[in-house]
Nucleic acid binder design. Structure first.
Length: 567
RNA sequence: GCGCCUGUAGCUCAGUGGAUAGAGCAUCGGCCUCCGAAGCCGAGGGUCGGAGGUUCGAAUCCUCUCAGGCGCGCCA
């Protein structure tokens, strides 16, 4: 829908380039007017040209409209003005286009024939994008905050894939640092305690019940084999055993949530393969590493960071940042064109140094993008659910998924912009009512499924029967009610919404669109009978319903939410 | 002290420099002898935190300011 207008406006501007004495013409942004009465699509290009041409915007708009009309006479190819019912100039200088019904029907027919492929595009052109998300420390179960990151990352990957990118979903495992060591120590202490030995629990150790479960598991497998051993002696075993168990648990929780990763990158492996050393060596060769106060520093200020950052401490140990440099260099070495990191908002201070590292290895600035996920405030009946990580008390993702359901949880996470705080009320989410936007959308889909079941029972001639495009057009032409035309236009807007979501990395745009589309469908359904006594009309309306279903399903797929035929 | 994010209807939130700022919930009033009422129709509700500025035009961009959240380690 937009494409046709874009081409026409572009051609018109091209023809005006000479008369206007311009070397180049601006890209014409095509938007959907706020009110439907204004038109189906509009462009503000005339207003944007006022400064350059030093003419009033409405005058420029007139010239553009005139050029569009002349364009059709000269037949330059491509879509012609005959797709428009009207072209009007309005307000300060908007050019509003209104399509002929015939054009809308034709586009609907294309949607019905090509289905999902007509809704996608190829802005990615096969370029490789790497999306790293969740990357929770394997020291405990995932909590709801991780779930939000998982939902957003997953949806984003789905969208980018549909937009023609080659996407890799990766989980980075922090299995090399002090945290996993502390996890091992915590489990060791519990192991000893469960074996009847008085053992001190490490300060700041992990206190959740799951620590005990892991200890029990070890007792089950190894009995008292480690009771008389020291921490130095078997700490590594406990660390390894514990974090691998946690990792398996995390992977299962994610899978239950409907999120599957392509790759799990171990931090430890980066050290073992010498990649940390290598990456620092590369920086040294670029003269971006120096020694000061007995430590080694990376010159990140050279790339816009506030201050330089230590990569090797005085005691010779690497900092966390050192392995992160190696990790991000590895991403580049694997040939990704764009690197997307989804982080908790509390990590925002980390962005400049990673950006610096990537820039040092030659990645253009705009090829590194970070999505910050804000905290989730968990409520129950309006009351905040107290969570204390110190005491090991927090609501896990799996608990919420078990209680509320994966579809609802994901959808709610995707009804907000990633970087705005979100309230998640478990009781409200559980209610199968209008409070719950996911039902509203799914209900529209299920309702249409139900209509199709009715249609089969009543023996209405199937819309799917093999008919030529011509025949299809002849009954689609019966869709002339206002609600029907509005619905078709809304369907045709999907690709614009989708593209916006892909370019801005904002899955929530699709969530909002789906709610609007579902709303228009419900409204239509209440006003007009789909299974009309008039067979042709019934067929046309079934086709419209089918198209709504295709778009609903496409959108829900992007969000990773199911589209049930019954509910 | 410095940096980042947020501030829009009673509540939760959309809103990529454009037209009269929207949705859901909540409140009030209607709609099932007919395809799923998890639905529909209607009503009320706004100093877009505040003040300047940029321009044809600002919720959106800039500066200042107020409020809330987060981050500022040779921690991870």
């Amino acid at each position: 829908m937009r494409q046709e207008v874009e081409i026409i406006v572009h051609n018109a501007l091209e023809s005006l380039k000479g008369p206007w004495g311009l070397d180049s013409i601006p890209g014409a942004d095509i938007e959907v007017p706020r009110n439907e009465e204004m038109g189906d699509v509009a462009t503000t290009v005339a207003m944007g040209l006022t400064k350059i041409l030093k003419k009033p915007p409405r005058k420029i708009a007139e010239e553009i409209v005139e050029a569009i009309q002349n364009l059709s006479l000269s037949k330059v190819g491509g879509p012609g003005v005959d797709i428009f019912e009207s072209i009007e100039i309005a307000g300060p200088g908007f050019i509003n286009f209104r399509f002929k019904n015939e054009f809308l029907h034709k586009k609907l027919e294309v949607l019905l024939t090509e289905e999902h492929s007509s809704l996608r595009n190829d802005i990615g052109k096969g370029r490789k994008v790497q999306v790293e998300f969740v990357s929770a420390n394997p020291t405990g179960p995932l909590h709801v905050g991780h779930g939000r990151g998982a939902a957003v990352g997953n949806a984003l990957c789905n969208i980018l894939q549909a937009a023609g990118f080659e996407v890799e979903r990766e989980f980075y495992i922090n299995d090399a640092g002090l945290q996993v060591k502390l996890l091992g120590e915590s489990v060791f202490a519990r192991y000893l305690q469960l074996s009847g030995i008085e053992a001190p629990f490490p300060e700041d150790g992990y206190k959740g019940d799951y620590i005990e479960s892991i200890a029990e598991e070890i007792i089950k497998r190894a009995g008292d084999e480690y009771v008389n051993r020291s921490l130095e002696d078997c700490g590594e075993f406990f660390t390894d055993y514990a974090y691998k168990m946690m990792l398996a648990n995390i992977e299962k929780d994610l899978k239950d949530f409907g999120v599957v990763f392509d790759r799990w990158q171990s931090e430890k492996e980066l050290y073992e393969k010498g990649k940390v050393q290598d990456s620092l060596q590369t920086l040294r060769q670029k003269d971006l590493l120096y020694e000061k106060d007995g430590a080694k520093w990376f010159n990140s200020t050279g790339f816009g960071d506030d201050k330089d950052r230590v990569v090797v401490k005085q005691d010779g140990e690497y900092t966390y940042f050192a392995s992160d440099i190696a990790y991000h260099k590895d991403k580049l070495d694997r040939g990704f064109d764009t690197i997307i990191n989804i982080w908790g908002a509390d990590h925002h201070g980390y962005i400049p140094r990673i950006r610096s590292a990537l820039a040092a290895f030659g990645l253009p600035k705009d090829k590194f993008r970070v999505i910050l996920i804000q905290m989730v405030a968990l409520l129950r009946n309006g009351e905040p659910v107290q969570m204390s990580k110190r005491a090991g008390e927090f609501v896990t993702l799996s608990e919420v998924v078990d209680e509320v359901g994966a579809d609802i949880t994901k959808f709610i996470f995707l009804t907000r912009r990633a970087d705005s705080q979100l309230e998640f009320d478990i009781e409200v989410a559980k209610e199968q009512s209008a409070e719950n936007p996911v039902f509203y959308v799914q209900y529209a889909f299920a309702r249409i499924s139900s209509i199709f079941r009715q249609a089969v029972e009543k023996g209405v001639k199937s819309y799917e029967s093999r008919v030529t495009s011509q025949e299809k057009m002849s009954y689609l032409a019966l869709l002339t009610e206002n609600e029907e035309l509005s619905l078709i236009k809304k369907l045709l807007q999907y690709p614009m919404v989708f593209e916006g979501a892909a370019l801005s990395l904002e899955p929530h745009r699709i969530t909002y669109y789906l709610q609007e589309l579902a709303g228009m469908f419900h409204s239509y359904y209440n006003r007009h009978r789909v299974l009309s006594d008039d067979a042709g009309l019934a067929n046309a309306r079934l086709s419209l319903c089918k198209a709504v279903q295709i778009v609903l399903k496409e959108g829900l797929n992007m969000l990773g939410v199911s589209a049930p035929e019954r509910m």
